[in-house]
Write a protein that binds this DNA or RNA. Sequence first.
DNA 1: AATCAATTCCAAACCGCTTTGGATAAAGCA
DNA 2: TGCTTTATCCAAAGCGGTTTGGAATTGATT
Lengths: 343, 343
Amino acid sequence: MNLKELATKLGLSPTTVSRALNGYPEVNETTRERVMAAAKRYSYSPNTRAIRLATGRALAVGHVIPIASQHEIVNPVFADFIAGAGEVYSRNGYDMLLSVVRDDDEERTYRELVARGAVDGIIVHGPRMQDRRVPLLHEIGIPFVVHGRASGTSSAYSWLDVNNRRAFQRATEFLIDLGHRRLALVNGLEFMDFAMRRRTGFTDALVAHGITPDPALMSSEEMTEIAGFHAASRMLNMAASPTAFVVSSMISGMGVRRAVERAGLVLGRDVSIIIHDDELSYLRNGDDVPIFTATRSSVREAGRLTAEMLLELIANPTSHPKERLLEAELIIGQSTGPAPREV
Amino acid sequence: MNLKELATKLGLSPTTVSRALNGYPEVNETTRERVMAAAKRYSYSPNTRAIRLATGRALAVGHVIPIASQHEIVNPVFADFIAGAGEVYSRNGYDMLLSVVRDDDEERTYRELVARGAVDGIIVHGPRMQDRRVPLLHEIGIPFVVHGRASGTSSAYSWLDVNNRRAFQRATEFLIDLGHRRLALVNGLEFMDFAMRRRTGFTDALVAHGITPDPALMSSEEMTEIAGFHAASRMLNMAASPTAFVVSSMISGMGVRRAVERAGLVLGRDVSIIIHDDELSYLRNGDDVPIFTATRSSVREAGRLTAEMLLELIANPTSHPKERLLEAELIIGQSTGPAPREV
DNA sequence: AATCAATTCCAAACCGCTTTGGATAAAGCA
DNA sequence: TGCTTTATCCAAAGCGGTTTGGAATTGATT
């Protein structure tokens, strides 16, 4: 059933039917109701392809998921972020277009996506330091919102980020307040923007309390269980081993915990851990009582908010870039406790 | 730059330019080269919206990701599956459309997606027993491939699945051969088709070796770390506690491992664990040496193959349903060993 | 009663491509 | 030489909607 057929059945012109369905004023209310009823009766869905061509809008948003070409890792937060964003799109009649792209030919993908007219806007995932994509998308001239930030970018752009520096600073201070003096950071890869900020928050807190950051107690690797395990094991084997860990993710944290337990130490007594918890749906940090003390910020909610920002930007392309900084909560769990007394 | 402009610049008709670019024979080779060169020079990308309308094809595939409305959990394998499928789509000029849908209004989503003409085919994720979506998509009449199977469905349909029954049977037999007699299953939710099959494989192996399955040693819960931890803790507290666990996922396995270590037992000596490893990129089972003994099957590869099946089906809608059963590898890691001697 | 402004509807153009059905010129054949 | 093929290109008609620019009808105003 298409518009013309429906119009014929109603004895109206396609014009009127179209207007009736789209809520334009120049159509009699009784006519509109007739049309609406008929549309429902024949379960008419306007052909998206035609709408897109006629309106010149794609009614779709592109998410470009970069895959690090060396490691082939898909960021695990991505699924929940998408789930949040997807809600917003479907509520607003937008489609979500996903491109999974190795980071060596990202540029081509972005350009094509826009030139082909496949999307009205783009969400940028996994920004790195001095990310080339920000100037690129400015040049292309398409609305976009970055999930995270790209330090070292000169021009303004829209972004939504968690205050990673602040979160890690607070986590570190919390541990310092508990008496810990030898603190370790198990961080993600530090060419990623968020990881850099977390490191800054960590060292800032140390320095502010007169503790000199020890490079041997700061690792920067992929956020996997194994990497966390290895990094923590190595540090725990040092002469002056750390009594507390600040860890970049739930998964790494599980690796750190394993290293701690493997070393015969008790979590929350001998060694404390604070992780960052993205509230991934399949990696809940405890049911009622949180297991890990954590800086917490829902990545699904971030997905929702980012999507809303982008749709606004699309509706209002000349508006100024919007920025949104979310604060992470500090959740006290069972993985932290006072620093053990020196022997 | 659109087709008409390009044609004008070349002094040709849009018809000829279109044909030249799409490889039709009725155009002179030298003309074709001229056109190609000009297209590249002006970086012309044909407008997807127009192509879709003109050809009546969506050139897009829909992935409908169900979110269990009670738990709001996004299946973690989904990200890697998508990554695999995405490769295939971009190689073939298809877009990937993602709909994240709570499982209470799935039907509407599927119907609309097709009625609107947004997709040429659909991938069904997370099939359950007697899944309603299979008959629904048959009724709608759109090519689709199921990732997994839907037991209890009468009509034929295309699917790609891992031989879950066989994998879990082999894993169980492997443990029995190591001398284990009290085996536990930490399974996913058993209304999911794959979980049911895994359970069958587990009990089949037991029965075949004269062991009566003990309901107290079979849990069926969400595949989270915590659920794994709780289930294993409970079982390890039983009088006749299990000496071996067959576990449905890497993440649950990490919970089981934690329970084992928490109980003061040594993995691979006191207690053995076999997990199923989907080879998620951010959850590698060890670097060179696998940590867990595991039944292994790459979900990313499954994504690739499923996508290829669907594209074939779209190109050839009258062909018979295709079925593809992947066998999982059994990988020996450090989490298994001979059953401990009875005390 | 004549004029003007709404109100309500429609015909036709348009979005940017593909594709059908020729037209023209060159080549092949009897 | 005249006629049929073959090669090459083009005009125009879609695809299924939206949107512009009227036209016809009705109601209000003077």
